[in-house]
Design a protein around this nucleic acid. Structure first.
Lengths: 420, 420
DNA sequence: TGAATTAGTCTACGTTGTGGACTAAATATC
DNA sequence: GATATTTAGTCCACAACGTAGACTAATTCA
């Protein structure tokens, strides 16, 4: 529910307003800030002084010149003091990113591991080591890490920081946030949502889009006017289980003909001719063992062994070689993605479709089929069919979005930081 | 973009907070308000005094008693002064509702007309007459009408108050808001969205749901935490064109196998055996003529003549008589609705599904099929499949939601009203 | 009848933004 | 090169609003 506004809340709000404008426009003089915000020069000066004292903003020596009159002193967001960590647990790697307040990536660390062979506790312990090392390095750079967010491939209970169900990791009800016990608050979020936020803050500059994360599963994150849409329980965006064909192949979710059966990494690998559990990495027996250790309910899946990230480069190599099966698989996946997206567009009305994850490398072979399907299904009713574009961010998107979310929170409420 | 907070904005916010609590909890003493809002008794008293002076709130003689100590004076939202009008243009009727600030419906007026035989200008002129008469009556009751909202069956450009495309009326780019020229601001909105808001404010008391409006077309409105989700351009909720079967019957939208082809009023009437254009009202020749005057692009539809509201009671009578074709049509419609809703649930994660419009009278024959389809498609992945319930509001939902939206705006920002 | 308890008002005060005067630092003009 | 003009930023008296706690009012309990 809404909160009472007292003088301190008024101040907090105006601090956020000023910092937000500095953040959005790069660098500004106090005079320009007064003009934009509608506050008086006096007030803006006081607010900026507070922000400078807190180390969130710096005066650059540079002054705005050219016009006549006294030149203003330009301020910009300072990346020298405050930072956040973005963490990611995925099927075949762990990732840590440190991002400063000016949204500069200060540290990138990715470690390849096969998490399907490991217990949740071990995975989290390894991630914890990586995170603590990264924080140490950040401190050496003079940065203060104020918080972190962890991306996991599956739906999450945000309140408790528990991973509800991550089928590709074989996790069920794992209290990751508690297990991590880092020296700052850590929030846990669905990878697909964070990848969308990564695209928002580190991508092409759009602020209204549906971001599709193609991985072992297929998730999506909807950003409307710069804000993530989460649904009633935070489980929105399960694009992978949108119906493509109501009597199509059975899916692990219990439905039939879900998008994942046509366009997930596993489906593409199988259709291209990769034998189940016989990809470039590991072997079938080992994998099955790992799965039995954790996952359940995957019995109905077409490729019970699952695939690894290496498989996607194998598929790309087949496509580049002109392999007919691979090309046909992409054509079909593109069509299915188009069908599912046409439902999504009718329901949530996104401005643009951004394809990320495996659809990045596969874009040359599926982009056109997706766009063509959308045009044929939507073109008659609408003035404009949402354009389909590819994300520039690779597998980084989720970890960057995770780090960015903490930064976003500081920008949106700098007063919370001043008090401590 | 966010706005600067000055003293007046602080006050406006706190006025809204107090009024909002009074509105939400029915009636409260100043002391209770101070407790709930966290404001001091002094401040609450001042705010309440302003609200009383503006006529938005009244002291009821009644006092809260039972406990010891001085009894408090209870205040509640006053329905005696401020009111709004909800307007609706639909295929076969015009509706006007006057609702006061306490959300009591003060005036109901519905006029049956066949708007497919009329020019937009004539329809709007008739509605204008109805609205002005209703406003006169409201004034006689001592009410001041502060605004209105108009519900139309189709997507709308809210900024300009233009109906983009209402296929069932045969309207295209009609500037309704301008044509209406009522003596207060009127906003135009999609009927499906307003029906969802009607359900929110006048229905079963839920604040998280997807409301499905079954009519000639099928629309939906998503309410999350008491707020309507609109999408990037305000066109979200087009459930009627969600894919049920990608190679199903052609739809006027250009797609194939859209939900409307299975579960719209027209589809049900046709499947029950109503010959195209030969329903209880009018005849085929007349209808075709009316359609040619306005609509276009309906050539591929199964029942080009369309149906009228009377047809739904005809279908219900067939169902009550045990007609096999009608029962099968409902079974199929329920299944299709379930398939489309399973996609919607995966994408937007609603808490509850509320079926309204024609699905109200049809609920006994389709409710179970919808729920069963949802359970079979979603049950394995989720702890809980959203329950499917029926709306208590009949055809009134949209007009009530329209009126309610103005009331909601006053509650959310009473200060805006005080200034005038 | 008086003590206890709770509701609401009154008054001095603190915090924050405002508006206009004032100082500072640049360019334009003669 | 001196002076006018223009724009940036600071200073100070003031106004708006919420706060805190004393105070009055109205009820129940003993």
């Amino acid at each position: 529910m809404a909160q009472a506004v007292r003088h301190d809340a008024m101040r907090a709000r105006n601090l956020a307003l000023v910092l937000g404008e500095v953040n959005a426009r790069g660098s500004l003089t106090r005079a320009a800030l007064a003009e934009i915000t509608g506050l008086t020069k006096t007030t803006v000066s006081k607010l900026v002084a507070d922000l400078i004292e807190a180390g969130l903003v710096v005066e650059t020596g540079a002054v705005r010149d050219g016009e006549r009159g006294r030149p203003g002193v330009v301020v910009r967001v300072s990346g020298e003091h405050v930072a956040s960590v973005g963490l990611e647990i995925n099927v075949d790697y762990l990732a840590v990113r440190v991002v400063d307040l000016s949204r500069t990536v200060r540290l990138r660390r990715t470690q390849a591991v096969d998490n399907r062979f490991a217990q949740p506790g071990d995975v989290v312990a390894l991630l914890r080591d990586l995170a603590l090392k990264a924080v140490d390095d950040a401190v050496d750079m003079g940065l203060r890490v104020v918080g972190g967010v962890l991306a996991v491939p599956g739906p999450v209970d945000q309140r408790t920081g528990t991973v509800h169900n991550a089928p590709n990791l074989g996790w069920r009800d794992v209290p990751v946030a508690a297990l991590l016990e880092l020296p700052f608050p850590v929030q846990v979020e669905n990878e697909a949502n964070l990848a969308a936020l990564g695209e928002l803050w580190f991508g092409s500059g759009l602020s209204d889009f549906l971001h599709v994360s193609g991985e072992i599963g297929i998730g999506a994150g909807l950003v409307v006017r710069g804000r993530l849409f989460q649904g009633s329980h935070g489980f929105a965006g399960e694009l992978g289980h949108v119906v493509v064909s109501p009597d199509g192949p059975a899916c692990r979710c219990g439905g039939k003909g879900c998008l994942e059966q046509y366009a997930s990494q596993d489906a593409l690998a199988a259709a291209t001719g990769l034998p189940p559990g016989a990809g470039p990495h590991g072997n079938g027996a080992q994998r099955t063992g790992a799965q039995a250790g954790g996952a359940s309910g995957n019995g109905t899946q077409a490729t019970p062994g699952g695939t690894t990230a290496g498989d996607i480069s194998w598929i790309v190599s087949r496509l580049e070689a002109g392999d007919a099966a691979a090309l046909a698989a992409c054509e079909r996946a593109g069509w299915a993605l188009g069908v599912a997206l046409s439902s999504a567009i009718n329901l949530v009305d996104p401005d643009t479709i951004v394809l990320g994850g495996i659809y990045g490398p596969l874009f040359p072979w599926i982009g056109e089929a997706v766009a063509a399907t959308l045009t044929s299904r939507l073109g008659q009713m609408r003035d404009a069919v949402p354009p389909v574009v590819v994300s520039r961010l690779g597998t980084e998107a989720a970890a960057l979005g995770a780090a960015g979310q903490v930064i976003q929170r500081v920008i949106a409420d700098p007063a919370a930081l001043l008090q401590t």
